[in-house]
Design a protein around this nucleic acid. Structure first.
Length: 259
DNA sequence: TTGATTGTTACCGG
DNA sequence: TCCGGTAACAATCA
């Protein structure tokens, strides 16, 4: 499975070698043939990630916009490329490597103004140097909505997904149902800093890791998180409560995260 | 075959 | 206008 937000940033980092290269772009299943032909044979000048969105910028052509959604995957391999596996929408082929993008929710080309509009509707991304966390705190501190819902709103903060939401709030001892306006600035800053660190670690390792003692790279998923998907709090042993917030399952330790 | 899922948007009703 | 609920879509695996 894809590792949420971090995979986009990780993908951007891993695809850096494409920058400056002329890419062959194809659509093995034909479902993105028109878009692929627009960027095929163009020089990739930059690869940009903002939140869960990935943008390949080309010289003299529109940008390729990818959002993996729940199910999308990105696979990188050395040349020569084998047969595409599964639902490959786009195959990007460079000099030494190729990248297959499977089953993304969004796979489209955008012109400059459309890219600008996309970036404008996203909140600050903890992984970007140009992020302005104060914009996120403005939104949160003025809202009655629960923090656990605000964290999932990509126009508030770009890049937090369902697992990071649960894990960040547990780590910072904030109850997901606390109204945004009741989150102190100090608590917000701690949350933001923690998000920066965890997301950076995730991007580096290409995996969601929220426990303190970083387990081996090949560890099981459940060993890399604290309470997500679990029944018992690792700190106090209390039962973990699970409920739906913002259409997704959130987990909370009512003892460690008092309201 | 069924259910669950690291995501998002559209639409409707109160 | 805001907010909650529901459905839809996506692909894969256990």
């Amino acid at each position: 499975m894809p590792e949420g937000h971090t995979i986009h940033r990780a993908a951007r980092d891993q695809h850096r070698m494409f920058t400056g290269q002329r890419l062959a772009v194809s659509s093995p299943q034909g479902r993105f043939a028109a878009g692929a032909s627009q960027v095929h044979g163009r020089v990739c000048v930059d690869i940009e990630a903002c939140g869960k969105h990935l943008l390949y910028h080309f010289k003299g052509a529109p940008s390729l916009h990818i959002h993996l959604g729940l199910f999308g995957r990105i696979r990188k391999g050395k040349m020569p490329a084998g047969e595409p596996r599964g639902e490959v929408r786009v195959r990007l082929v460079g000099e030494s490597h190729h990248v297959d993008i499977n089953g993304p929710t969004i796979c489209e080309t955008l012109n400059d103004s459309e890219v600008a509009a996309l970036l404008a509707r996203l909140g600050p991304d903890p992984l970007r140097d140009d992020a302005e966390p104060s914009l996120a705190y403005q939104r949160i501190s003025r809202s009655r909505m629960p923090v656990g819902q605000l964290l999932m709103d990509q126009s508030v903060i770009a890049g937090i997904g369902n697992i990071y939401r649960t894990e960040l709030l547990w780590r910072q001892r904030v109850h997901p149902e606390r109204p945004g306006r009741e989150l102190s600035e100090a608590s917000f800053e701690a949350l933001w800093r923690d998000a920066c660190n965890l997301l950076a670690l995730g991007a580096r390792r290409n995996a969601i890791i929220t426990v303190e003692n970083v387990p081996p790279a090949r560890s099981r998923y459940r060993e890399r998180v604290n309470i997500f998907g679990k029944t018992e709090c690792p700190d106090c042993g209390s039962a973990i409560r699970r409920f739906t917030l913002a259409t997704r399952k959130v987990y909370v330790c009512e003892h460690c995260q008092p309201r």
